[in-house]
Design a protein around this nucleic acid. Structure first.
Ligand SMILES: [Mn+2]
Ligand SMILES: [Mn+2]
Ligand SMILES: [Zn+2]
Ligand SMILES: [Zn+2]
Lengths: 122, 122
DNA sequence: ATCATAAATAGTAATAATTCCTATTATTGT
DNA sequence: ACAATAATAGGAATTATTACTATTTATGAT
């Protein structure tokens, strides 16, 4: 993978937010710095960054979001404000369980807890 | 929600498989019994059945799949054959943890374990 | 620095999944 | 049987994403 000015900018944008942005959000941000960038370039580079293990792709319903955080972690999704919040839970036991009980070799545990975040406590 | 012949057929198709079918798969099956059914009708009715809590919608990457199994459960996704397998894990502790640690009111825990299923053991 | 090679890009077309629209049809209560 | 209106077919529209291709750019070798 050859160096590219645009890929660097795209990576910086993803690394600069905790909001798990969509491709289009990254595109809008990128346009401010690089007015002639195209959405296809954003998608291509996000995919390359994912392939290179520099970012993660997560699916929020049927839309892809990107995450700089490569540590194994889970997400809380607030059904009121839509926020995705990072949480660190322990799923070592889960991995062991599926391996023993289902003869399934786990690779990655993807967990999202849907509910209501602290901002909406009355 | 008024009775409809087609909705009943769609529900029966989803209830008749463990494969977590896509809308298009349901559409293909439905066409055998009801040749003039349209894909829009399948989507509309799957949504209504979900709203009526008769089926569940799950997202496999960025594609919607439908599940007759309304019991809280998780899925193993095999990255080789693509199969989605039902598993019952315990997430009571997870619910308590996010409630206490993150003041987050959990509603639903969605968990998918990606890996390799038993069929591919050498 | 010049050049050659191929990766990266813009701009646009194409695809895939899903939703929307509207004239017609079917269900249901009276 | 009839009226009210939910459901439907068929097609258009939308949204997210990928593919195509002529041009530009990075990079290593001369
Ligand atoms: Mn995250
Ligand atoms: Mn299931
Ligand atoms: Zn919230
Ligand atoms: Zn498998």
């Amino acid at each position: 993978m050859r160096y590219s000015h645009k890929r660097e900018a795209i990576q910086e944008i993803v690394y600069g937010t905790n909001s798990h942005p969509t491709a289009d959000w990254v595109f809008q941000k990128a346009k401010v710095k690089i007015p002639n960038i195209s959405l296809g370039t954003v998608y291509r580079n996000l995919k390359q960054l994912d392939d290179a293990q520099l970012i993660n792709t997560i699916y929020d319903g049927n839309i892809a979001r990107y995450d700089w955080n490569r540590e194994p972690h889970d997400h809380l999704k607030c059904k009121i404000c839509g926020d995705l919040i990072d949480v660190q839970l322990f799923d070592d036991q889960i991995r062991k369980t599926v391996k023993k009980l289902y003869k399934f070799e786990p690779d990655d545990v993807v967990m999202t807890i849907i509910g209501t975040c602290h901002k909406h406590n009355k």
